[in-house]
């Protein structure tokens, strides 16, 4: 797959976790691979982002602080199911990233 020149610092990373580490309140001993997007997006910034940066800096936007380019998932991983300690199944959707981009 071709790597985009812009936003190349924004990458998909993964970490092996217990489902309980997610902090969603489930009681189970099952595990998962959590994938997330991380990295700088400076090289993908547009005039829009530069303007926002300048306006925020010069206090022209009152108290607004609009978000600039972020390294975010543009596609999510498949759903994840697990059985909890009370023998009930749960399915998590859109819980883990599959593809990242500066957006």
């Amino acid at each position: 797959e071709r790597v985009k020149v812009q936003g190349r610092g924004c990458l998909l990373k993964e970490i092996h976790l217990n489902v309980t580490d997610l902090g969603l309140g489930y009681r189970t001993k099952e595990e998962l691979i959590f994938r997330y997007c991380s990295g700088p997006c400076h090289d993908a910034e547009t005039n829009y982002d530069k303007i926002l940066n300048n306006l925020t800096h010069n206090k022209k936007l009152d108290k607004d602080t609009p978000s600039r380019t972020c390294c975010r998932p543009i596609a999510f991983d498949d759903d994840l199911s697990f059985l909890d300690d009370n023998l009930e199944y749960h399915t998590l959707k859109k819980h883990s990233a599959r593809k990242c981009a500066c957006v």
């Binding site: 001993k29 759903d79 199944y89």
Partner: peptide, 26 residues
């Protein structure tokens, strides 16, 4: 059985098809 469930969820194919039946079955 727990170890098998863990191994399944760490494998992309098994994880995908496991949740693909647990969803409609629950």
């Amino acid at each position: 059985c727990l170890n098998a469930a863990k191994a399944c969820n760490l494998n992309d194919t098994c994880k995908k098809y496991r949740s693909a039946y647990i969803s409609p079955c629950t």
